[in-house]
Simulated assay, not measured.
Amino acid sequence: MRFAPAAAALSLALAITASVGQGAEPAPSPRAAMLIAEGEAALDAGDTQKAIDAFEAALTVDPAYTPTLLRLAEAARADGLQGKAIGFYREALTRDPDNFAAISGEGAALVEKGALERARLNLAKLESLCGDGCDETRALATAIATGPAERVLTAEAVMPDAEVVQSN
């Protein structure tokens, strides 16, 4: 009985310490951090394929580091692969359902694909989680207001009508 108060205080301290430790995102492995930096530099330089390769390599080295998925999704969007980017955002949301950057990024990719109603659902979720004032909510609201970009037709996409000649 004399140890009960001390044991209760110790167990409370351990519970608080454990919950704080679980909430923080662990740092990536040093090799993955180097690959992520390489990918960010390539993305800043406009070399999306090199960035995607670096981020995929970082994800292979450290598959538990969720921010790599977000960077990979950004690179896929920059390369015009919105469907692939949505897949990466959804994987990040599977790991962390309240990840504001993933919710906003997925919504922006949905806008780019023309799925405005689904993007508005993401906006509503962001507004309920972090309010109108957070950066992710404002970015997604701006993307929805802007709407999807006009698709550019190529010469190959516009084919002249074929003339049908009936033979006798």
Rank of each mutant, 00 (worst) to 15 (best):
Q49I: 08
G133D: 12
N122E: 03
N99Q: 13
P67A: 09
Q22K: 11
D62V: 05
S19F: 09
A92H: 09
S167V: 14
F55R: 02
S104D: 04
A9H: 10
I52L: 06
A37L: 06
T142Q: 14
A141L: 02
M159G: 02
I36P: 01
K84S: 10
P5W: 12
E25A: 13
A102G: 12
Q166Y: 15
C134Y: 01
D79I: 02
P67H: 11
L121P: 00
L93C: 04
A27Q: 14
G133C: 02
G80H: 06
G39C: 02
D161A: 15
T154N: 08
P28Y: 05
R138W: 05
A37M: 07
G23Y: 13
G107C: 06
E150G: 12
A57P: 01
P148T: 08
A6E: 09
E40W: 03
G105S: 06
G133I: 00
P148Q: 12
E25I: 14
V165I: 15
L43E: 06
A92M: 08
R118K: 11
P30C: 10
A8L: 15
L140R: 00
L123G: 06
D161V: 14
R95M: 08
K113H: 02
G87E: 15
K125G: 06
A75R: 03
A24Q: 10
R151C: 07
L69S: 01
G105A: 04
D79N: 12
L81P: 00
A162H: 03
A58Q: 07
G131C: 06
G80L: 09
Q49L: 11
L140G: 01
P30L: 10
Q49W: 11
E106W: 01
A9V: 15
N122S: 09
G46N: 11
V111C: 06
A15E: 04
L14V: 13
L153Y: 14
A57N: 08
T137M: 02
L126D: 15
A18S: 13
S104W: 03
I16S: 13
F3H: 13
A108F: 00
E38D: 14
P63I: 08
E38K: 12
P30N: 12
T68M: 02
F55A: 02
G46C: 10
E112A: 15
A85G: 08
P67E: 07
D161S: 13
R118N: 05
A75Y: 05
F3Q: 12
T60W: 11
A9Y: 11
A157N: 12
S29D: 13
E150S: 14
I86P: 03
D62Q: 07
E127Y: 05
A108H: 00
T48L: 00
G80V: 11
L72C: 09
N99T: 03
M159R: 15
G131V: 05
G23C: 06
M34N: 13
A145E: 15
